[in-house]
Write a protein that binds this DNA or RNA. Sequence first.
DNA 1: CGACCATTTGATATGGATCAAGCGATGTGG
DNA 2: CCACATCGCTTGATCCATATCAAATGGTCG
Lengths: 234, 234
Amino acid sequence: MHPQTAVRSDPIRRPAVPVRSASLAWDGAIDTEVLDQTMQLMGAMMGYPRNSEIFGENEPADYLYKVVSGSVRTYKILNDGRRQIGGFYLPGDIFGLEFADEHTLSAEAIADAKILVIKRSTLNALAGRDASVARQLFALTGRELGRVQDRIMLLIKSAQERVASFLLEMAARVSGGNSIELPMSRQDIADYLGLTIETVSRTLTSLECSATIEVPSSRRIVLRNRLALSRMNG
Amino acid sequence: MHPQTAVRSDPIRRPAVPVRSASLAWDGAIDTEVLDQTMQLMGAMMGYPRNSEIFGENEPADYLYKVVSGSVRTYKILNDGRRQIGGFYLPGDIFGLEFADEHTLSAEAIADAKILVIKRSTLNALAGRDASVARQLFALTGRELGRVQDRIMLLIKSAQERVASFLLEMAARVSGGNSIELPMSRQDIADYLGLTIETVSRTLTSLECSATIEVPSSRRIVLRNRLALSRMNG
DNA sequence: CGACCATTTGATATGGATCAAGCGATGTGG
DNA sequence: CCACATCGCTTGATCCATATCAAATGGTCG
Protein backbone atom coordinates (compact mmCIF):
# COMPACT_ATOMS: atom_id res chain seq x y z
CA MET A 1 0.00 0.00 0.00
CA HIS A 2 1.62 3.16 -1.16
CA PRO A 3 0.73 6.79 -0.90
CA GLN A 4 0.53 7.38 -4.62
CA THR A 5 -2.42 5.02 -4.71
CA ALA A 6 -4.28 6.95 -2.05
CA VAL A 7 -7.80 8.08 -2.77
CA ARG A 8 -8.11 11.57 -1.42
CA SER A 9 -9.57 14.94 -2.08
CA ASP A 10 -7.62 16.83 -4.71
CA PRO A 11 -4.51 18.48 -3.36
CA ILE A 12 -5.30 22.07 -2.65
CA ARG A 13 -2.60 24.38 -3.82
CA ARG A 14 -1.28 26.27 -0.91
CA PRO A 15 -2.26 29.88 -1.50
CA ALA A 16 0.69 31.85 -2.80
CA VAL A 17 2.69 32.89 0.18
CA PRO A 18 5.20 35.72 0.13
CA VAL A 19 8.71 34.31 0.41
CA ARG A 20 9.60 34.84 4.00
CA SER A 21 13.20 35.74 4.44
CA ALA A 22 13.46 34.92 8.10
CA SER A 23 16.79 33.36 8.92
CA LEU A 24 17.17 29.68 9.43
CA ALA A 25 17.34 30.02 13.16
CA TRP A 26 18.41 26.79 14.71
CA ASP A 27 17.33 27.87 18.07
CA GLY A 28 14.69 27.26 20.59
CA ALA A 29 10.97 27.30 20.44
CA ILE A 30 9.65 24.53 18.29
CA ASP A 31 6.22 24.95 16.89
CA THR A 32 5.39 23.00 13.82
CA GLU A 33 2.33 25.04 13.03
CA VAL A 34 3.13 25.93 9.44
CA LEU A 35 4.40 22.46 8.72
CA ASP A 36 1.27 20.99 10.22
CA GLN A 37 -0.95 23.22 8.14
CA THR A 38 0.97 22.33 5.04
CA MET A 39 0.59 18.65 5.67
CA GLN A 40 -3.12 19.11 6.33
CA LEU A 41 -3.57 20.93 3.06
CA MET A 42 -1.25 19.05 0.78
CA GLY A 43 -0.91 15.65 2.35
CA ALA A 44 -2.87 12.47 1.72
CA MET A 45 -4.59 10.71 4.60
CA MET A 46 -3.75 7.03 4.66
CA GLY A 47 -4.98 4.18 6.80
CA TYR A 48 -2.63 1.46 7.99
CA PRO A 49 -3.93 -1.60 9.83
CA ARG A 50 -2.17 -2.88 12.93
CA ASN A 51 1.25 -4.41 12.19
CA SER A 52 1.23 -3.33 8.57
CA GLU A 53 4.37 -1.88 7.06
CA ILE A 54 4.41 1.82 6.31
CA PHE A 55 7.79 1.76 4.70
CA GLY A 56 10.69 -0.64 4.67
CA GLU A 57 14.37 -0.26 5.20
CA ASN A 58 16.14 0.54 1.93
CA GLU A 59 13.01 1.75 0.22
CA PRO A 60 13.29 5.22 -1.30
CA ALA A 61 12.50 7.85 1.29
CA ASP A 62 10.09 9.92 -0.80
CA TYR A 63 7.55 10.86 1.85
CA LEU A 64 7.20 12.47 5.23
CA TYR A 65 4.59 11.11 7.62
CA LYS A 66 2.53 12.52 10.43
CA VAL A 67 0.58 10.35 12.84
CA VAL A 68 -3.04 11.42 13.14
CA SER A 69 -4.30 8.49 15.16
CA GLY A 70 -2.85 5.18 16.27
CA SER A 71 0.86 4.82 16.74
CA VAL A 72 3.94 3.76 14.88
CA ARG A 73 7.27 2.09 15.56
CA THR A 74 10.39 2.35 13.46
CA TYR A 75 12.85 -0.50 13.69
CA LYS A 76 15.72 -2.35 12.20
CA ILE A 77 16.40 -6.07 12.18
CA LEU A 78 20.03 -6.83 13.00
CA ASN A 79 21.82 -9.67 11.29
CA ASP A 80 21.52 -11.89 14.34
CA GLY A 81 17.77 -11.57 14.17
CA ARG A 82 17.35 -9.15 17.05
CA ARG A 83 15.12 -6.16 16.44
CA GLN A 84 16.08 -2.69 17.60
CA ILE A 85 13.27 -0.18 17.76
CA GLY A 86 14.33 3.26 16.62
CA GLY A 87 11.42 5.14 18.09
CA PHE A 88 7.73 5.29 18.84
CA TYR A 89 5.55 7.90 17.17
CA LEU A 90 2.27 8.97 18.72
CA PRO A 91 -0.53 11.16 17.34
CA GLY A 92 0.91 14.50 16.34
CA ASP A 93 4.41 13.14 15.82
CA ILE A 94 6.20 13.37 12.51
CA PHE A 95 8.40 10.56 11.25
CA GLY A 96 10.16 9.37 8.14
CA LEU A 97 12.56 12.31 7.97
CA GLU A 98 15.66 10.84 6.34
CA PHE A 99 18.84 12.34 5.00
CA ALA A 100 19.79 9.60 2.66
CA ASP A 101 17.77 8.64 -0.40
CA GLU A 102 16.64 5.50 1.31
CA HIS A 103 15.09 4.75 4.65
CA THR A 104 17.52 3.36 7.17
CA LEU A 105 14.71 1.95 9.31
CA SER A 106 11.41 0.26 8.64
CA ALA A 107 8.14 1.61 10.00
CA GLU A 108 5.02 -0.26 11.10
CA ALA A 109 1.69 0.66 12.61
CA ILE A 110 1.55 -0.56 16.20
CA ALA A 111 -2.22 -0.14 16.23
CA ASP A 112 -4.55 0.75 13.36
CA ALA A 113 -3.34 4.16 12.33
CA LYS A 114 -4.38 7.14 10.25
CA ILE A 115 -1.37 8.87 8.83
CA LEU A 116 -0.94 12.03 6.84
CA VAL A 117 1.55 11.51 4.05
CA ILE A 118 3.26 14.22 2.07
CA LYS A 119 5.77 14.04 -0.75
CA ARG A 120 9.24 14.97 0.24
CA SER A 121 9.75 16.79 -3.05
CA THR A 122 6.66 18.91 -2.41
CA LEU A 123 7.80 19.89 1.04
CA ASN A 124 11.27 20.40 -0.23
CA ALA A 125 10.15 22.87 -2.86
CA LEU A 126 7.97 24.62 -0.35
CA ALA A 127 10.83 24.95 2.10
CA GLY A 128 12.71 26.84 -0.59
CA ARG A 129 9.97 29.44 -0.80
CA ASP A 130 8.85 29.60 2.80
CA ALA A 131 11.60 29.88 5.35
CA SER A 132 9.27 29.02 8.20
CA VAL A 133 8.74 25.58 6.70
CA ALA A 134 12.47 25.15 6.34
CA ARG A 135 12.97 26.28 9.90
CA GLN A 136 10.43 23.85 11.21
CA LEU A 137 11.93 20.95 9.31
CA PHE A 138 15.25 21.92 10.78
CA ALA A 139 13.82 22.20 14.28
CA LEU A 140 12.16 18.84 13.86
CA THR A 141 15.47 17.29 12.96
CA GLY A 142 17.11 18.94 15.92
CA ARG A 143 14.50 17.60 18.26
CA GLU A 144 14.91 14.13 16.83
CA LEU A 145 18.66 14.43 17.33
CA GLY A 146 18.14 15.41 20.94
CA ARG A 147 15.88 12.45 21.54
CA VAL A 148 18.30 10.02 20.01
CA GLN A 149 21.15 11.45 22.09
CA ASP A 150 19.09 10.94 25.21
CA ARG A 151 18.55 7.33 24.18
CA ILE A 152 22.29 6.84 24.06
CA MET A 153 22.60 7.96 27.67
CA LEU A 154 19.79 5.56 28.47
CA LEU A 155 21.34 2.55 26.83
CA ILE A 156 24.40 2.52 29.07
CA LYS A 157 22.30 2.46 32.24
CA SER A 158 20.82 -0.38 34.25
CA ALA A 159 17.55 -2.10 33.42
CA GLN A 160 15.74 -0.25 36.22
CA GLU A 161 16.99 3.09 35.01
CA ARG A 162 15.98 2.34 31.44
CA VAL A 163 12.49 1.29 32.37
CA ALA A 164 12.05 4.24 34.72
CA SER A 165 13.16 6.66 31.98
CA PHE A 166 10.86 5.01 29.51
CA LEU A 167 7.87 5.40 31.79
CA LEU A 168 8.64 9.05 32.43
CA GLU A 169 9.12 9.70 28.72
CA MET A 170 5.83 8.06 27.88
CA ALA A 171 4.02 9.87 30.66
CA ALA A 172 5.29 13.16 29.26
CA ARG A 173 4.22 12.27 25.73
CA VAL A 174 0.82 10.67 26.17
CA SER A 175 0.17 13.02 29.03
CA GLY A 176 -2.86 11.62 30.78
CA GLY A 177 -1.55 12.80 34.12
CA ASN A 178 -0.06 9.87 35.98
CA SER A 179 -1.96 7.22 34.13
CA ILE A 180 -0.36 5.93 30.96
CA GLU A 181 -2.03 3.83 28.30
CA LEU A 182 0.81 2.12 26.50
CA PRO A 183 0.16 1.48 22.82
CA MET A 184 3.02 -0.98 22.50
CA SER A 185 3.68 -4.52 23.70
CA ARG A 186 6.30 -5.61 26.21
CA GLN A 187 8.34 -6.93 23.34
CA ASP A 188 8.29 -3.50 21.70
CA ILE A 189 9.42 -1.90 24.94
CA ALA A 190 12.16 -4.47 25.36
CA ASP A 191 13.43 -3.91 21.82
CA TYR A 192 13.33 -0.17 22.38
CA LEU A 193 15.33 -0.33 25.61
CA GLY A 194 17.75 -3.02 24.51
CA LEU A 195 16.49 -5.48 27.13
CA THR A 196 14.63 -8.77 27.02
CA ILE A 197 10.90 -8.98 27.53
CA GLU A 198 11.50 -10.93 30.76
CA THR A 199 13.69 -8.22 32.20
CA VAL A 200 11.15 -5.53 31.34
CA SER A 201 8.41 -7.56 32.97
CA ARG A 202 10.43 -8.29 36.09
CA THR A 203 11.46 -4.67 36.42
CA LEU A 204 7.86 -3.50 36.22
CA THR A 205 6.89 -6.06 38.82
CA SER A 206 9.65 -4.87 41.07
CA LEU A 207 8.60 -1.23 40.66
CA GLU A 208 5.09 -2.28 41.52
CA CYS A 209 6.28 -4.05 44.65
CA SER A 210 8.07 -0.92 45.78
CA ALA A 211 4.81 1.00 45.22
CA THR A 212 6.48 3.21 42.63
CA ILE A 213 3.93 2.29 39.99
CA GLU A 214 0.69 0.38 39.62
CA VAL A 215 -0.07 -1.95 36.73
CA PRO A 216 -3.83 -2.43 36.70
CA SER A 217 -3.66 -4.07 33.29
CA SER A 218 -0.64 -4.91 31.21
CA ARG A 219 -1.09 -1.92 28.90
CA ARG A 220 -1.98 0.56 31.61
CA ILE A 221 0.52 1.92 34.08
CA VAL A 222 -0.05 4.44 36.85
CA LEU A 223 2.89 6.39 38.19
CA ARG A 224 2.60 6.52 41.95
CA ASN A 225 5.97 8.03 42.77
CA ARG A 226 7.47 10.11 40.02
CA LEU A 227 10.23 11.33 42.27
CA ALA A 228 11.49 7.81 42.82
CA LEU A 229 11.43 7.22 39.07
CA SER A 230 13.33 10.45 38.42
CA ARG A 231 15.95 9.54 40.95
CA MET A 232 16.60 6.30 39.05
CA ASN A 233 17.01 8.29 35.90
CA GLY A 234 20.58 9.52 35.95
CA MET B 1 39.25 30.66 27.64
CA HIS B 2 36.51 31.96 25.44
CA PRO B 3 36.26 32.82 21.78
CA GLN B 4 35.50 36.49 22.36
CA THR B 5 38.94 36.86 23.85
CA ALA B 6 40.65 35.38 20.83
CA VAL B 7 43.37 37.33 19.14
CA ARG B 8 42.85 37.03 15.44
CA SER B 9 42.96 38.83 12.17
CA ASP B 10 39.96 41.07 11.67
CA PRO B 11 36.89 39.26 10.44
CA ILE B 12 36.64 39.67 6.71
CA ARG B 13 33.16 40.45 5.61
CA ARG B 14 31.99 37.81 3.24
CA PRO B 15 31.58 39.54 -0.12
CA ALA B 16 27.92 40.32 -0.77
CA VAL B 17 26.39 37.21 -2.20
CA PRO B 18 23.16 37.17 -4.15
CA VAL B 19 20.47 35.46 -2.12
CA ARG B 20 20.33 31.97 -3.49
CA SER B 21 16.85 30.63 -3.63
CA ALA B 22 17.77 26.99 -3.95
CA SER B 23 15.42 24.80 -2.00
CA LEU B 24 16.34 23.36 1.35
CA ALA B 25 16.97 19.95 -0.10
CA TRP B 26 17.35 17.48 2.67
CA ASP B 27 18.79 14.94 0.37
CA GLY B 28 21.95 13.34 -0.51
CA ALA B 29 25.38 14.62 -1.30
CA ILE B 30 26.94 16.35 1.63
CA ASP B 31 29.66 18.79 0.88
CA THR B 32 30.32 21.44 3.41
CA GLU B 33 32.30 23.57 1.04
CA VAL B 34 30.45 26.84 1.51
CA LEU B 35 30.19 26.33 5.24
CA ASP B 36 33.90 25.58 5.41
CA GLN B 37 34.76 28.71 3.44
CA THR B 38 32.55 30.78 5.66
CA MET B 39 34.19 29.47 8.77
CA GLN B 40 37.62 30.12 7.28
CA LEU B 41 36.69 33.69 6.46
CA MET B 42 34.64 34.65 9.44
CA GLY B 43 35.76 32.34 12.19
CA ALA B 44 38.40 32.80 14.85
CA MET B 45 41.21 30.31 15.20
CA MET B 46 41.61 29.16 18.78
CA GLY B 47 44.13 26.92 20.46
CA TYR B 48 43.12 24.49 23.18
CA PRO B 49 45.70 22.51 25.13
CA ARG B 50 45.22 18.80 25.79
CA ASN B 51 42.38 18.09 28.23
CA SER B 52 41.20 21.70 28.34
CA GLU B 53 37.52 22.42 28.21
CA ILE B 54 36.13 23.93 25.01
CA PHE B 55 32.65 24.36 26.36
CA GLY B 56 30.73 22.97 29.29
CA GLU B 57 27.35 21.42 29.65
CA ASN B 58 24.69 24.05 30.31
CA GLU B 59 26.79 26.88 28.96
CA PRO B 60 25.07 28.97 26.29
CA ALA B 61 25.60 27.42 22.88
CA ASP B 62 26.66 30.54 21.03
CA TYR B 63 29.35 29.10 18.77
CA LEU B 64 29.94 26.45 16.17
CA TYR B 65 33.33 24.75 16.09
CA LYS B 66 35.46 23.11 13.45
CA VAL B 67 38.48 21.00 14.25
CA VAL B 68 41.56 22.10 12.31
CA SER B 69 44.10 19.97 14.12
CA GLY B 70 44.08 17.77 17.17
CA SER B 71 40.90 16.08 18.25
CA VAL B 72 37.95 16.59 20.53
CA ARG B 73 35.59 14.56 22.66
CA THR B 74 32.13 15.60 23.78
CA TYR B 75 30.81 13.98 26.93
CA LYS B 76 28.39 14.05 29.77
CA ILE B 77 28.92 13.03 33.38
CA LEU B 78 26.01 10.98 34.68
CA ASN B 79 24.82 11.34 38.23
CA ASP B 80 26.51 8.11 39.29
CA GLY B 81 29.84 9.52 38.16
CA ARG B 82 30.16 7.56 34.96
CA ARG B 83 31.13 9.47 31.86
CA GLN B 84 29.43 8.89 28.54
CA ILE B 85 31.27 10.17 25.50
CA GLY B 86 28.96 11.68 22.92
CA GLY B 87 31.39 11.64 20.06
CA PHE B 88 34.92 12.11 18.82
CA TYR B 89 35.71 14.91 16.39
CA LEU B 90 38.75 14.74 14.16
CA PRO B 91 40.31 17.37 11.90
CA GLY B 92 37.70 18.59 9.44
CA ASP B 93 34.79 17.69 11.69
CA ILE B 94 32.30 20.25 12.90
CA PHE B 95 30.84 20.08 16.40
CA GLY B 96 28.86 22.15 18.87
CA LEU B 97 25.71 22.22 16.77
CA GLU B 98 22.93 22.44 19.34
CA PHE B 99 19.23 23.03 19.12
CA ALA B 100 18.65 24.28 22.58
CA ASP B 101 20.08 27.50 23.92
CA GLU B 102 22.53 25.58 26.04
CA HIS B 103 24.96 22.81 25.33
CA THR B 104 23.77 19.40 26.44
CA LEU B 105 27.29 18.00 26.43
CA SER B 106 30.71 19.27 27.42
CA ALA B 107 33.62 19.32 24.99
CA GLU B 108 37.33 18.86 25.65
CA ALA B 109 40.46 18.69 23.54
CA ILE B 110 41.82 15.14 23.53
CA ALA B 111 45.16 16.39 22.23
CA ASP B 112 46.35 19.97 21.75
CA ALA B 113 43.93 21.30 19.19
CA LYS B 114 43.45 24.21 16.82
CA ILE B 115 39.82 24.98 16.39
CA LEU B 116 37.95 27.39 14.17
CA VAL B 117 35.17 29.09 16.09
CA ILE B 118 32.27 30.99 14.57
CA LYS B 119 29.36 32.77 16.20
CA ARG B 120 26.10 31.00 15.87
CA SER B 121 24.28 34.27 15.29
CA THR B 122 26.60 35.13 12.40
CA LEU B 123 26.08 31.80 10.74
CA ASN B 124 22.43 32.00 11.46
CA ALA B 125 22.06 35.33 9.73
CA LEU B 126 24.12 34.09 6.83
CA ALA B 127 21.96 31.03 6.45
CA GLY B 128 18.99 33.32 5.98
CA ARG B 129 20.65 34.97 3.00
CA ASP B 130 22.48 32.05 1.50
CA ALA B 131 20.46 28.90 1.08
CA SER B 132 23.54 26.81 0.47
CA VAL B 133 24.75 27.59 3.98
CA ALA B 134 21.37 26.66 5.38
CA ARG B 135 21.38 23.48 3.36
CA GLN B 136 24.79 22.52 4.60
CA LEU B 137 23.86 23.14 8.21
CA PHE B 138 20.85 20.97 7.66
CA ALA B 139 22.89 18.26 6.00
CA LEU B 140 25.38 18.40 8.83
CA THR B 141 22.60 17.85 11.32
CA GLY B 142 21.28 14.99 9.28
CA ARG B 143 24.66 13.36 9.19
CA GLU B 144 25.02 13.75 12.94
CA LEU B 145 21.60 12.19 13.38
CA GLY B 146 22.63 9.25 11.25
CA ARG B 147 25.77 8.74 13.28
CA VAL B 148 23.93 8.85 16.56
CA GLN B 149 21.36 6.36 15.28
CA ASP B 150 24.16 4.01 14.31
CA ARG B 151 25.53 4.32 17.84
CA ILE B 152 22.21 3.14 19.22
CA MET B 153 22.43 -0.01 17.14
CA LEU B 154 25.96 -0.41 18.46
CA LEU B 155 25.07 -0.08 22.10
CA ILE B 156 22.78 -3.10 22.16
CA LYS B 157 25.47 -5.37 20.78
CA SER B 158 28.18 -7.43 22.44
CA ALA B 159 31.52 -6.04 23.50
CA GLN B 160 33.27 -7.63 20.54
CA GLU B 161 30.79 -6.15 18.11
CA ARG B 162 31.15 -2.71 19.66
CA VAL B 163 34.91 -2.74 19.52
CA ALA B 164 34.91 -4.11 15.96
CA SER B 165 32.51 -1.38 14.84
CA PHE B 166 34.58 1.25 16.57
CA LEU B 167 37.74 0.14 14.80
CA LEU B 168 36.03 0.13 11.42
CA GLU B 169 34.53 3.57 12.07
CA MET B 170 37.88 4.98 13.06
CA ALA B 171 39.64 3.37 10.11
CA ALA B 172 37.11 5.02 7.81
CA ARG B 173 37.56 8.41 9.44
CA VAL B 174 41.29 8.69 9.99
CA SER B 175 41.81 6.81 6.76
CA GLY B 176 45.45 5.77 6.83
CA GLY B 177 44.66 2.55 5.04
CA ASN B 178 44.60 -0.28 7.52
CA SER B 179 46.78 1.40 10.09
CA ILE B 180 44.96 3.56 12.63
CA GLU B 181 46.56 6.05 14.97
CA LEU B 182 44.05 6.46 17.78
CA PRO B 183 44.00 9.91 19.33
CA MET B 184 42.08 8.77 22.38
CA SER B 185 42.86 6.66 25.43
CA ARG B 186 41.37 3.29 26.29
CA GLN B 187 39.24 5.02 28.88
CA ASP B 188 37.83 7.31 26.20
CA ILE B 189 37.03 4.34 23.99
CA ALA B 190 35.40 2.53 26.89
CA ASP B 191 33.24 5.53 27.75
CA TYR B 192 32.29 5.90 24.10
CA LEU B 193 31.24 2.27 23.74
CA GLY B 194 29.59 1.92 27.13
CA LEU B 195 32.13 -0.67 28.29
CA THR B 196 34.86 -0.72 30.92
CA ILE B 197 38.48 -0.13 30.10
CA GLU B 198 39.26 -3.72 31.06
CA THR B 199 36.73 -5.10 28.63
CA VAL B 200 38.04 -2.94 25.80
CA SER B 201 41.57 -4.07 26.53
CA ARG B 202 40.64 -7.73 26.72
CA THR B 203 38.63 -7.52 23.52
CA LEU B 204 41.55 -5.96 21.65
CA THR B 205 43.83 -8.67 22.99
CA SER B 206 41.41 -11.32 21.87
CA LEU B 207 41.15 -9.78 18.38
CA GLU B 208 44.92 -9.75 18.24
CA CYS B 209 45.09 -13.42 19.22
CA SER B 210 42.71 -14.29 16.39
CA ALA B 211 45.00 -12.34 14.01
CA THR B 212 42.18 -9.95 13.17
CA ILE B 213 44.22 -6.93 14.22
CA GLU B 214 47.73 -6.04 15.33
CA VAL B 215 48.48 -3.67 18.19
CA PRO B 216 52.11 -2.60 17.74
CA SER B 217 51.67 0.11 20.33
CA SER B 218 48.69 0.93 22.46
CA ARG B 219 47.64 3.88 20.31
CA ARG B 220 48.30 2.21 16.99
CA ILE B 221 46.14 -0.53 15.56
CA VAL B 222 46.51 -2.31 12.27
CA LEU B 223 43.49 -4.03 10.75
CA ARG B 224 44.58 -7.40 9.41
CA ASN B 225 41.19 -8.83 8.58
CA ARG B 226 38.51 -6.26 7.86
CA LEU B 227 36.10 -8.91 6.69
CA ALA B 228 36.17 -10.61 10.07
CA LEU B 229 35.56 -7.25 11.75
CA SER B 230 32.65 -6.51 9.42
CA ARG B 231 31.09 -9.85 10.14
CA MET B 232 31.09 -9.03 13.83
CA ASN B 233 29.35 -5.80 13.04
CA GLY B 234 25.69 -6.72 12.73
C1' DC C 1 -15.03 -24.16 26.32
C1' DG C 2 -10.65 -24.37 24.11
C1' DA C 3 -6.90 -22.44 21.29
C1' DC C 4 -3.85 -18.89 21.07
C1' DC C 5 -1.00 -15.17 22.31
C1' DA C 6 0.98 -11.93 25.61
C1' DT C 7 2.77 -11.63 29.99
C1' DT C 8 4.65 -13.15 34.28
C1' DT C 9 7.37 -16.09 37.14
C1' DG C 10 11.04 -19.47 38.12
C1' DA C 11 15.73 -21.72 37.56
C1' DT C 12 20.11 -21.48 35.61
C1' DA C 13 23.89 -19.69 32.68
C1' DT C 14 26.97 -16.17 31.18
C1' DG C 15 29.15 -11.81 29.55
C1' DG C 16 30.93 -8.07 31.25
C1' DA C 17 31.76 -5.44 35.67
C1' DT C 18 34.45 -5.14 39.61
C1' DC C 19 38.36 -5.75 42.49
C1' DA C 20 43.19 -6.47 42.52
C1' DA C 21 47.73 -7.07 40.87
C1' DG C 22 51.39 -6.84 37.40
C1' DC C 23 53.70 -4.67 33.48
C1' DG C 24 55.77 -1.33 30.40
C1' DA C 25 56.56 3.29 28.83
C1' DT C 26 57.67 7.98 30.11
C1' DG C 27 59.54 11.34 32.92
C1' DT C 28 62.15 13.25 37.15
C1' DG C 29 65.57 13.99 40.47
C1' DG C 30 69.75 12.58 42.47
C1' DC D 1 73.02 7.42 33.70
C1' DC D 2 70.27 5.02 36.60
C1' DA D 3 66.81 4.39 40.65
C1' DC D 4 62.25 5.41 41.21
C1' DA D 5 57.62 7.39 40.88
C1' DT D 6 53.75 7.79 37.80
C1' DC D 7 50.46 6.73 34.51
C1' DG D 8 48.14 4.05 31.08
C1' DC D 9 47.39 -0.47 29.88
C1' DT D 10 46.98 -5.48 30.39
C1' DT D 11 46.01 -9.65 32.85
C1' DG D 12 43.88 -12.46 36.51
C1' DA D 13 40.09 -13.90 39.83
C1' DT D 14 35.57 -13.37 41.28
C1' DC D 15 30.86 -11.49 41.32
C1' DC D 16 26.51 -9.97 39.67
C1' DA D 17 22.94 -8.18 36.46
C1' DT D 18 20.74 -9.63 32.79
C1' DA D 19 20.10 -13.25 29.24
C1' DT D 20 18.42 -17.65 28.39
C1' DC D 21 15.60 -21.61 28.89
C1' DA D 22 11.33 -23.33 30.67
C1' DA D 23 6.87 -23.37 32.58
C1' DA D 24 2.69 -21.27 34.55
C1' DT D 25 -0.85 -17.73 34.25
C1' DG D 26 -4.08 -14.68 32.27
C1' DG D 27 -6.67 -12.41 28.73
C1' DT D 28 -9.06 -12.53 24.14
C1' DC D 29 -11.60 -14.34 20.46
C1' DG D 30 -13.82 -17.88 17.75
